[in-house]
């Protein structure tokens, strides 16, 4: 990773690095360090006295059945969002990659949702699923199926999953399309000549060759579902009804912002940090292996 020919100088490179490092230290390392430190502290009810309590915040957290429920919500939500958005994107990408009329048009029409904010995607979906002013919500109630995601926890979970997955499909679509275009055409033609039908060609050639892309997207989508869907949940359900759509990040926000529980919210931040470090480590281990392969 080193260049052979370089420039001389010591002051200049430090100067060039200064802005990035300054922001990194002030807004990343210092706050992250504080989060870890606060996670071992506890404040009294008036915020006057603070004492060191070791791992008590963590112990309390994992002894809290509501927190366990939140972990369960997060797992269900993240798995569903990831599976739904990856499967939809893969289907659309395989079809849009075929030699058909208007392929470029389809691609453009499937790429634009990338630009939509998670919170805005949620607002768009309000007008689909709202029980009284939404297209689908109205239709369901009209057919005699009681539908109100503000009252029914399972329906609320379904709605935040759909809105979050919907927003992420175009991202996955872009990567699958790029992956498909890098598969050598000769391999596919050889299989076709040997008499392999499209479905068989997909499962025996295309899908295995796409596995690096799929794996990469798996990690990215899980990270997205963990962290970036805060806006979706805040706009649609605010974690309700009865905490049924509260995820780890939403709970950390509520405890810090609304309940002002510094120790617990810091402990939750540390739990989230561990989760993302694990996800990133998995991703980079995998990339390393692929480079050697």
């Amino acid at each position: 990773m080193n260049r052979k020919v370089i420039f001389k100088g010591v002051a200049l490179p430090y100067l060039l690095l200064l802005p990035q490092l300054l922001i990194t230290v002030v807004f990343f390392f210092w706050p992250a360090g504080q989060a870890i430190w606060f996670s071992f502290l506890r404040q009294d009810a008036f915020g006057i006295r603070t004492q060191f309590v070791g791992f008590e915040n963590f112990a309390d957290l994992f002894a809290d059945p509501l927190y366990i429920q939140v972990i369960g919500n997060t797992v269900v939500f993240s798995a569903a969002v990831t599976a739904l958005s990856i499967a939809t994107a893969l289907l659309l990408a395989v079809l849009a990659d075929r030699q058909i009329r208007g392929a470029q048009g389809y691609r453009t029409l499937l790429i634009w949702p990338y630009a939509i904010a998670p919170a805005v995607a949620a607002v768009l979906w309000i007008f689909m699923v709202h029980p009284s002013i939404g297209l689908l919500g109205q239709a369901l109630n009209g057919m005699g199926i009681p539908w109100d995601y503000k009252l029914n926890g399972a329906q609320a979970m379904l709605v935040v999953i759909i809105a979050s997955a919907w927003k992420q499909v175009s991202y996955n679509f872009i990567f699958f399309l790029a992956g498909l275009q890098s598969i050598p055409k000769a391999v596919l033609e050889a299989a076709a000549i040997d008499g392999a039908r499209p479905v068989r060609r997909f499962w025996t050639i295309i899908f295995p060759l796409l596995s690096p892309t799929t794996f990469f997207l798996l990690v990215v989508n899980l990270t997205y579902a963990f962290f970036d869907t805060f806006g979706v949940i805040d706009a649609l359900t605010k974690g309700g009804p009865a905490k049924s759509t509260e995820t780890l990040i939403y709970r950390a926000y509520i405890d810090g912002r609304v309940n002002l529980d510094l120790g617990s919210s810091s402990a939750q931040a540390v739990v989230l940090m561990v989760a993302i470090i694990a996800l990133t480590a998995v991703q980079f281990r995998f990339i390393e292996r692929r480079v050697h392969y």
Binding site: A32, F38, M273, I276, I277
Partner: peptide, 15 residues
């Protein structure tokens, strides 16, 4: 990369 704004919101907020 491993410290997105969401995991360090409150300390960052304080800074």
């Amino acid at each position: 990369l491993m410290l997105p704004v969401e995991v360090r919101i409150f300390p960052t907020f304080k800074v």
